[in-house]
Amino acid sequence: MRKRTGCTPPRVGDGPFFRRMLISIVLVVGAFLILAPLLIIGVEAFAKGWQVYRDTILHPDTRHAIMLTVLAALVAVPVNTAFGIAAAWAITKFDFRGKAFLLVVIEIPFSVSPIVAGVAYLFVYGLQGIFGPTLDAHGIKILFAIPGIILASMFVTAPFVARELIPLMQAQGRDLEEAATSLGASGWRTFFSVTLPNIKWALLYGVVLCNARVMGEFGAVSVVSGNIRGQTNTLPLHIELLYHDYQAAGAFASASILALIAVFTIIAKLALERRGAGRVRPAVNPAEKA
C-alpha cells in the first residue's frame, strides 16, 4: 500500500489509534470472557492433584454420565444427520407448498430456549401430558429416562446439519441430479455418486457441530431427565450436580472432559473449513475460452 499523504482522508477504521484500540479491546475481552474460564477449568480440575482428578473421572457416576452422553450422541447425531439431509434435499431439489414454512420449522430449535423445549416435552410425554397416561399404561417411560434425554437432545440439534447443507445445495442447483437421472441413474445411485460427494465436507461440518451440541446440551435435558444420579445424568448435568455438592474439583474435572471435546470439535471444524465445507464450491467459469 502506498503511504498516505496528509490530504487524503483516512478510510473508515484505518487510523492507527482506532485500529490499535479495536484490537486491544477484542483481545482483552476475548481473554477475560473466553480464554480465562477455559484455563480455570484446567487449573481447577487438577487443583487437588492428579489423584482426585482420576478418582472423579473413574467414579461410577461420572463414568455413567459419560456413557449416557455418548449414547445420546450416538442416537441423536445419526438421526439428525438423516433428518438434515432429507430436509435439505426436500427444500433444495423439490418444489412444494409449505416450503418456506418448513424452513421456519427447521430453524425453531435455534431460536427457542432449550428449557422451553424441555418443558414442552413435559407437557407432551409427562404424566399430566397428552400422551403421558397412554404411555404409562403400556409401561413405556420416556420422561426421566433415557428416551426423554435423547428426544430433548434431538430437538435442540435438529437444525445443525440441515442448515449447513441448505445454502450449499441451493447454490449447486438441480442440474447434477437431473444429469445423473437422465443418464439412467436411480435415486439412490444419484445421491451416493453425485450429491453426497459434493456435499460431504459441509455434511461432516454439520455433524461435528451437531455432536458438540448434543454432548453439551444442558437446558432441555435438565428438565426431562429428572437428574437421577447414576441413571439419567448426562455429563453436563453431572457437572452441575457435583458443583452443587461443593465438589468443585470433581465438577471441574468432569468439565475438563467437555472442554476437551469442545477443543477437538474446534480443531475438526477448522480442518473441515479448510477442506471447503460450508463454503460454496467456486463456480467453474463457463465463459472461459476454449
Binding site: 442440474d175 437431473e178 444429469a179 437421472t181 437422465s182 439412467g184 436411480s186 463457463p286
Partner: peptide, 16 residues
C-alpha cells in the same frame, strides 16, 4: 427421464 433413453446436454453442462 431415467427410462426414456434421451441424451440431455445441459446449458451449463452439469458435469460432475
Amino acid at each position: 427421464v431415467r427410462d426414456r433413453g434421451v441424451g440431455f446436454v445441459f446449458q451449463h453442462y452439469a458435469l460432475f
